[in-house]
Design a protein around this nucleic acid. Structure first.
Length: 383
RNA sequence: GGGGAUGCGCCGAAGUUGGAGAGUCGGGGCAGACUGUAAAUCUGUUGCUUAUAGCUGAGGGGGUUCGAGUCCCUCCAUCCCCA
């Protein structure tokens, strides 16, 4: 059984003298999370194509994501409460973080209207109208019961002109204050603590990012998120903003860079002081046939793998990636068999988790910087 | 053996009433994209060449016509009916 009444806390254990990388442990009621960490995305109560048993035993995921917008639409707060929360419902005993729906303000921009009160969405399922207010989003996340819940924000697009970025950031700040107030005046529903992470915005503008970091820190009880990046900006801008923001944040709180990224992005941002990551890339790209390895990425659907009977990834930590051949995986994709997507997803997530596990180990033994510098260019190559 | 129907791109459809087709739709093939998941999705491409263009092309061959995928003759293939 999880340590249900454990206080949530973050302990910074080590800082890399050769970069800004850090090693720590985030404690939740559902388990300890070693940082840096990658969190697989499980939008609607499932990490697509992966069973919970594989998630814990093969991929060694320490925490997964859920999504407020999607879970609110289906199965809905009422049913989740009846089930005893998302952990019980999906039978995942590890920690869960829920995004607030702020990303859908960006990705479903054509289906929503932003007002001071909140964002009104026309459901992508049936067109029905729903208001997502900061208070409402807190209530939904109480019902879902995630260990870490996110403030309701507006994830701005890229490019985004300064005026809009500023206006949007200020709205996100006002929404944050309302989120925080609601969060403080409500209780967890399932007997274990939840923590609210505020989100820094400000697009790619230095002064806005600094202002946002300064404002948002006041609402950070446990950890802080950096949002509004990896939305199409050049990676140099993403790194620059991440670096700038991290340099302003208190060292005793974990930094969560939302939506990032490629394996190379993750290593670079670990080096800038980020502790937590999530991204749909390993899962979505797996379903689309893109396989990440230490020798670069490869499209398993390409003809060149037709009769390549070498392992999917001979260096992979999980047996599945070592035991099945590239030719077999390509075959599964060619005939559109579900198992192809399952194996590819298992592999990619396992690859991501192993990558951050090794990063942590190397930060501790001092070899992170050199290892990262050598590995990043290779990771970005196409095989 | 007799009669009938149908034949175009890798496959399957639709469509072209003698007047602009390397064209339409679906599939398959090949390739690209994907960053807090409206995504098992989307995009491109899929005869040849010296490639912003040109050439060849409607089962094969021949004919009529200013012009033929369309009409005529013939051969071939497939399917159906009769024997």
């Amino acid at each position: 059984m999880p340590e249900l009444h454990t206080e949530m806390k973050f302990e910074l254990e080590h800082s890399d003298p050769h970069s800004k990388a850090r090693v720590g442990t985030l404690q939740t009621a559902h388990g300890q999370i070693p940082t840096p960490i990658f969190m697989p995305v499980g939008t609607i109560g499932t990490v697509k194509g992966v069973h919970q048993k594989e998630l814990s035993e093969d991929i060694k995921a320490k925490i997964i994501l859920g999504n407020t917008y999607h879970l609110y639409l289906r199965p809905g707060s009422e049913l989740l409460e009846k089930a005893g929360g998302l952990h019980q419902f999906m039978n995942w005993q590890g920690p869960i973080l829920t995004d607030s729906g702020g990303f859908q303000v960006f990705s479903l921009a054509h289906r929503r209207k932003i007002k001071e009160e909140g964002a009104t969405f026309a459901s992508h399922i049936d067109g029905s109208k729903h208001l997502f207010s900061p208070e409402g989003v807190m209530d939904i996340q109480r019902s879902i019961g995630a260990d870490i819940i996110m403030a309701f924000d507006e994830c701005t697009p890229y490019p985004c002109d300064y005026r809009y970025a500023k206006k949007s950031m200020e709205l996100t700040h006002r929404w944050l204050k309302r989120c925080y107030t609601r969060f403080k005046e409500t209780e967890p529903k399932y007997g274990y603590p939840q923590s609210l992470f505020p989100i820094i915005q400000g697009s790619v503008y230095k002064d806005l990012r600094l202002k946002s970091a300064e404002t948002v820190v006041q609402y950070a009880d446990l950890g802080i998120a950096i949002g509004g990046l990896s939305v199409g900006e050049p990676k140099e801008e993403m790194y620059a903003m991440t670096d700038l923001v991290c340099s302003q944040l208190p060292s005793d709180k974990p930094r969560y860079l939302m939506g990032v990224g490629t394996p190379a992005n993750i290593l670079e941002c670990i080096a800038l002081g980020v502790d937590m990551f999530d991204c749909v890339m390993p899962t979505r790209n797996a379903r689309h046939g893109l396989i990440f390895t230490r020798k670069g990425k490869l499209n398993i659907k390409n003809k060149k793998w037709k009769d390549d009977f070498s392992p999917i990834d001979e260096e992979a930590p999980n047996p599945t990636s070592r035991q099945h051949t590239k030719a077999y995986l390509r075959h599964l994709f060619t005939v559109n068999e579900l198992l192809g997507m399952q194996i590819a997803t298992l592999h990619n997530l396992s690859f991501y988790l192993e990558l951050v596990r090794e990063a942590r180990e190397r930060i501790l033994d001092g070899s992170f910087r050199a290892w990262k510098d050598e590995l990043v260019p290779i990771l970005e190559q196409k095989r």
